[in-house]
Design a protein around this nucleic acid. Sequence first.
DNA 1: GTTGATCTTATTTCTC
DNA 2: GAGAAATAAGATCAAC
Lengths: 86, 86, 86, 86
Amino acid sequence: MEDAATAALTEAAREKLRQTVDRIERLEEEKAEVANQIKEVYGEAKAFGYDVKALRQLVRIRKVDRAEREEQEAILDLYLLALGEI
Amino acid sequence: MEDAATAALTEAAREKLRQTVDRIERLEEEKAEVANQIKEVYGEAKAFGYDVKALRQLVRIRKVDRAEREEQEAILDLYLLALGEI
Amino acid sequence: MEDAATAALTEAAREKLRQTVDRIERLEEEKAEVANQIKEVYGEAKAFGYDVKALRQLVRIRKVDRAEREEQEAILDLYLLALGEI
Amino acid sequence: MEDAATAALTEAAREKLRQTVDRIERLEEEKAEVANQIKEVYGEAKAFGYDVKALRQLVRIRKVDRAEREEQEAILDLYLLALGEI
DNA sequence: GTTGATCTTATTTCTC
DNA sequence: GAGAAATAAGATCAAC
């Protein structure tokens, strides 16, 4: 007997599913590679004598700051929009 | 008076720190982009009628399976080793 | 002046908070004890001549296997679900 | 053919291994249960209106404080010991 | 709006 | 003691 998964699907449907899963898996691999590179940079920094924990905090703070700045600009745009300036 | 951060580091040290932070931030941006692409693929799958939650589980299971397969090859040796027989 | 913590809570609220913290701390102590017992068992095994590293891997593999077995039952459903066929 | 693991061991050795693994697995199960109970307590606290994040911090701080206090006492003991007082 | 899921970060534990 | 792996914690986002 064919296995159930095979039986339940058309060949086309199975092919499409397989492609979707493949795309996701390739992207996740890419993501893992980049994550690895980040780890390496922290590793080098540590070897260089940096306090890695502090460095991570610095990066995090800058990220939050950036987000806040962007929000501020968005608010400003809203005000300008409300005034018919843009 | 100079501010503390300026005072505490040589210009060269500050430059190096800045470069390190830059590299990390660029890599994190890349990572975020890839994460976004993954999210988009799931989004398309959802639009196509897939059960996204199930699809995620499927991907996760395949990942575990891959890891498992690699470990299977080591199991027999492990059993023997665990008994101190090797 | 009363201190802020005292001022901000009724006696009943403080009592309840204290009990909650106590429960958590007792449970964490328990958890630490059990973790210790596990460490002891490995210690005995080592004294007995077992390869502790291999033993740990064996335990880990059995855990993964158990999880895997449970997941296997769900996989077929997942494939079907993933295709939106159910 | 008998499988290799069976072939390589006496029955007694296999029995002892099995018991060791069993003990470890039972203890790990216990540990997981306690971890779960802790999670439940936090869940109840949240339902009761507590700020779980703050509560966790409180528990963590108390733990650090305890460790410090114990260290202080150890240092005191050392001083006393050095003075021939104990 | 609260639970559940995912993802990330942090800490701890193991191993070499 | 340093690197790797496991566990836990925290934050975030979606679904009901």
